[in-house]
Amino acid sequence: MTPDFVRSMRVPVLVCAALLGLLGGNLLLGQFAFPGAGYFEAALSGVMVLLLLFFSMELIREPPVIRFFGVAGFLWVAIMFVMTLTDYLTR
């Protein structure tokens, strides 16, 4: 392990700690299943996904076009959900 390597691992270690912390938050919420807990759980999971995307997968260091593609997949999943649920929520 060289000093260079240790320095390079600062962000991944922080991300890992943050992910574990957020997971802890989610598990805690899971114990108190109050109405509306799902929204908080979804929000925490969303932050976890963003951390992974932008720091673990280094989207933040990529040129804009790759960043766009990285996000586009989620956008299209959202289209699928919204348009399908338009049907199910209004039946």
């Binding site: 299209w76 289209i79 348009m83 338009t86 049907d87 199910y88 209004t90 039946r91």
Partner: peptide
């Protein structure tokens, strides 16, 4: 990607959809 439901007008899809 926003128009697929027009294949399903008579298939029990909601009117709003």
């Amino acid at each position: 990607f926003f128009v697929w439901g027009h294949h399903m007008f008579v298939n029990g899809q909601s009117e709003v959809a």
